[in-house]
């Protein structure tokens, strides 16, 4: 005996009037904004277009990218060191790391920036005996910017790296110790490579945040994108236009980084729930190692 399949349901779908209404409101609001900005006589749009590709702007972009790259690299290295210190059995190292985080995360990066730049006010010279130089010679705006951003970033990276290290099964450390690995080798060869999958995605976010944070160095005139845009604009009475130029370039750079970041995130999210080891994961680590050491290239 067979039962005829029941008739497919043809229900009247819920009408999302609310959605349509909000969409209309948003379109009107955005349209009005664009209209008022676009037709605003106070903004010389042709100037924005002309200045978008000025050499000063490109110089600024170079500085911004350099600051981002260098301070991230230094911040990551610092973060790894501080995280390992934080998790070590040595109470002195633990306290130093905790104190560092307390200070550098507890004060605004803008204030830190200005303090490093003005170090010459309190320490006119740095060095020992005859080996000393004037602080102001030693710490250029770029140097102060790099120092401040890297030291600040190290504090934030510490927490990220620490989370990564703690995510690795303690059995891994035990197995390494049982084989006779020292603490340092266990960390470098066993724990950190596995912590990468947890460390890499948020580090991508840090890069994007850092790119934008570098604009703060305009406070000490470090010639980054924003400083250059500001200086040029104030000279030529086109400040607002130059702000828009800066926005354009920041947005372009963060868009590229965000795309890279979401790819990276997808790659590392693969198999993160299953066994702590997939071929894909191994390959990623393999690549990281290849990038790092020439000897790995032959693999």
């Amino acid at each position: 005996m067979s039962v005829a399949a029941p008739e497919a349901i043809k229900a009247v779908p819920i009408r999302h009037y609310g959605q349509w209404a909000t969409a209309a409101v948003v379109i009107v609001a955005v349209g009005a904004l664009v209209w008022s900005v676009g037709t605003n006589d106070a903004i010389q749009w042709n100037v924005v277009g002309d200045y978008l590709f000025r050499p000063e702007i490109f110089h600024g972009i170079g500085i911004t990218l350099a600051l981002t790259a260098f301070s991230m690299v230094a911040g990551i290295i610092g973060g790894i060191l501080l995280a390992v210190m934080r998790l070590s059995g040595n109470p002195v190292l633990r306290t130093v790391s905790t104190g560092y985080l307390w200070i550098f995360r507890g004060t605004p990066v803008l204030v830190q920036l200005v303090i490093w730049f003005n170090l010459g006010l309190v320490f006119p010279a740095i060095g020992i005996g005859s080996l000393s130089t004037s602080t102001n010679d030693l710490i250029s705006p770029f140097g102060a910017a790099l120092l401040a951003l890297a030291l600040n970033e190290a504090a934030y990276m510490t927490e990220i790296v620490r989370g990564g290290i703690l995510s690795v099964d303690p059995g891994q450390t035990e197995a390494a110790h049982a084989l006779g690995y020292s603490g340092a080798k266990t960390m470098r060869l066993i724990v950190l490579p596995q912590a990468m999958r947890v460390i890499v995605p948020p580090t991508g976010n840090e890069v994007i945040t850092m790119l934008k944070t570098t604009s703060l160095v305009y406070a000490i005139g470090a010639q980054d994108l924003f400083t250059e845009a500001y200086n040029f604009g104030s000279k030529n009475f086109t400040l607002f236009e130059m702000y828009l130029v800066a926005c354009f370039w920041y947005l372009a750079m963060t868009t590229i980084l965000t795309t890279l970041q979401s790819r990276l995130e997808k790659k590392y999210a693969k198999g993160s729930h299953a066994v702590p080891a997939g071929p894909g994961f191994g390959r990623v680590i393999g690549k990281v190692r290849m990038l790092r050491s020439p000897e790995g290239g032959a693999r």
């Binding site: 891994q172 197995a175 191994g282 680590i285």
Partner: peptide
């Protein structure tokens, strides 16, 4: 420890 091998219940192979 180098001269003493150990095998664990949960293998603890290095997954990477």
């Amino acid at each position: 420890r180098r001269d003493i091998g150990m095998v664990f219940q949960r293998f603890n192979l290095f997954p990477h």
